[in-house]
């Protein structure tokens, strides 16, 4: 399978960067990242510097891989980049590969960006304050299955950042909504509900993420199908908190 890849090359954060063309001839059974591995091997053999990209588990769960492929986060099908296979492309196709584009995710090198803003949002309040050793017996906190399932759906977020990359405003509302929802839904998370919403939103704003205009591109591109109800819940939690507290 012959393809033309147009790949973003940028030496470091302050470099300008540009798209560079690479012609490849690959086995259509490869995964997208295996295609890049293969290209990198060939570049290395020729003495050219390999393309830097992030990846780790290659199972769609760690959230590390993050390529913007032909104008869509993670490419043409709804999955993580590492789970995308070349059988979804056709002979002779031209594929543009770029890093996530968002002010809060600065490019580190080539296709790698810095997503530490997400960590800082979690540090602001994405937890239940319980020290090791102070927990009651697990079955003392019954949680209706339906609620537990719903909390799981929010907790399934892999923090890849596709939501931010998909949004024209680079908003992180879907990510933050999912973090807030997974705790707000369950009884253990209720005590810190308000302060959590306030602090995480404040941090989100401080990181420079954009505003949400409810177009839903984030959820549509989310590889693990985090739903828009998370944003609605975030808004509810946040407004509720702001009306009644003077925490932040």
């Amino acid at each position: 399978m012959k393809l033309t890849l147009k790949i973003w090359r940028q030496k470091h954060a302050n470099d300008k960067g540009k798209l560079v063309d690479y012609n490849v001839d690959i086995n259509p059974e490869m995964s997208f990242l295996e295609m890049l591995d293969d290209l990198n091997e060939k570049l290395a053999e020729r003495g050219e510097e390999p393309i830097a990209f992030d990846h780790d588990c290659r199972e769609g769960i760690c959230g590390t891989c993050n390529l913007y492929i032909n104008g869509r986060p993670h490419g043409p099908i709804r999955t993580t980049t590492c789970q995308l296979h070349m059988r979804h492309f056709h002979e002779g196709e031209s594929i543009v590969i770029e890093p996530w584009r968002a002010r809060s995710f600065p490019v580190v090198k080539d296709l790698i960006v810095d997503r530490s803003a997400f960590d800082r949002i979690v540090q602001a309040g994405g937890y239940i304050s319980v020290n090791t050793g102070s927990a009651p017996d697990a079955n003392e906190i019954p949680i209706p299955k339906q609620i537990a399932d719903e909390a799981f759906n929010s907790a399934a977020c892999i923090a890849c950042g596709a939501c931010v990359a998909a949004c024209k405003n680079a908003s992180a509302m879907l990510f933050v909504g999912a973090q807030i929802s997974k705790f707000a839904l369950v009884p253990q998370g209720k005590a810190e509900k308000k302060i959590r919403a306030e602090k995480m939103v404040a941090q989100m704003d401080a990181e420079g993420f954009g505003a949400c205009t409810n177009t839903g591109a984030c959820s549509a591109e989310c590889p693990v199908e985090i739903s828009m109800t998370n944003i609605a819940r975030l808004n509810r939690e946040y407004i509720g908190a702001k009306l009644t507290s003077d925490n932040v």
């Binding site: 239940i128 537990a148 909390a151």
Partner: peptide
């Protein structure tokens, strides 16, 4: 298990 549930880990129920 107690600790994880207290942290909010959504185990199957």
């Amino acid at each position: 298990i107690d600790q994880c549930v207290a942290q909010g880990v959504p185990f199957a129920r």
